[in-house]
């Protein structure tokens, strides 16, 4: 029994049942994983995709890089970060000149460009520098505090003279021996590794100071003490200071070194040996022959 009239303007009744696809769509939308993908995955993908599409243009990338560099430069060139001066403390004038030459700073510069660690390594790499500390003081001053090596001996080598400090570290080359007559002289290969021992021996040889020429490292294992007139005191490998003390004691008692002796051989401590000069040897033989009544 259909009603004969339909209410005016009322739309025909719609079937409330969802279509097959609407039903499936609703079920899909209620699937948790799908919803998560839709809510998080798709926006992420969209943003990423749009971003990469925009950045795909070379000019845009360059523009961004240029903008960043510009901003960076603007910050770096502010007066708060500028370094105007370099102050070097504790260095002799020529060392300070050396340091300036090595660093080759183009001041004023921004403190972002200064690599303090590298500069410290560079300065510490200089021979006369024992230690150095760098910092940027307020007011735009690069402060270097240098501790210089103190030369203790002069080392003569085939290449020339060199100043060494008490630890054997080279300080600087020396033009001539006369420039530093106050320092003792050592020679021989490997002498720089035993500067401390050499200084000890020099201290022991203080009574011989006026006649002392220097120490020679022999065979890279032991010392010869060289005096004027070509005299040598050959010291043993072990306990050279004791041997030297004995020689000095003998010298004090017997006036040993003022005699015509070429070398005092202390290499075997239990058997000190004297080597005479040829004339003295002749003289000795002659005296022996006289004593023996040969002539």
């Amino acid at each position: 029994m259909w009603p004969l009239r339909r209410a005016a303007g009322a739309p025909p009744r719609r079937d409330p049942a969802p279509s097959r696809w609407a039903y499936r769509m609703q079920r899909l939308m209620l699937t948790p994983l799908f919803r998560l993908t839709l809510r998080a995955g798709v926006p992420c993908l969209l943003v990423f995709g749009a971003g990469s599409l925009w950045l795909a243009d070379e000019a845009r990338r360059d523009a961004i890089a240029g903008r960043i560099a510009e901003m960076r430069a603007a910050i770096e060139s502010r007066p708060e970060f500028r370094v105007d001066l370099m102050a070097i403390d504790g260095a002799s004038p020529d060392l300070a000149a050396d340091i300036r030459e090595v660093l080759q700073l183009d001041l004023p510069a921004t403190s972002f460009d200064l690599d303090l660690d590298a500069m410290r390594a560079q300065v510490a790499g200089l021979d006369p520098v024992k230690s150095v500390s760098l910092r940027i003081r307020p007011g735009g001053i690069l402060q270097l505090e240098v501790q210089e090596r103190v030369p203790a001996v002069v080392w003569r080598r085939a290449e020339g003279l060199e100043l060494l400090d008490a630890e054997g570290h080279p300080v600087r080359p020396l033009g001539s021996r006369a420039a530093r007559p106050d320092l003792p002289l050592i020679a021989g290969e490997g002498a720089d590794a035993h500067v401390a021992e050499a200084l000890d021996l020099f201290a022991a040889a203080r009574p011989l100071w006026p006649r002392l020429r220097g120490l020679v490292r022999v065979g890279e294992r032991r010392w010869d003490l060289v005096l004027d007139r070509g005299q040598r005191i050959m010291l043993p490998v072990a306990q050279p200071r004791r041997a030297l003390d004995r020689v000095i004691a003998m010298d004090g008692a017997e006036d040993l070194l003022s005699r015509d002796i070429a070398a005092v051989d202390m290499r075997l401590p239990e058997r000190p040996t004297l080597r005479l000069n040829p004339q003295a040897m002749e003289e000795l033989h002659r005296i022996r022959r006289i004593e023996w009544g040969e002539d």
């Binding site: 969802p18 097959r20 079920r27």
Partner: peptide, 18 residues
Amino acid sequence: ELAIRTVLKTAQNMAQIR
């Protein structure tokens, strides 16, 4: 089938779960 789909759709909507 249509009626079952209708009722399931409504119930799922209310439960917010598949």
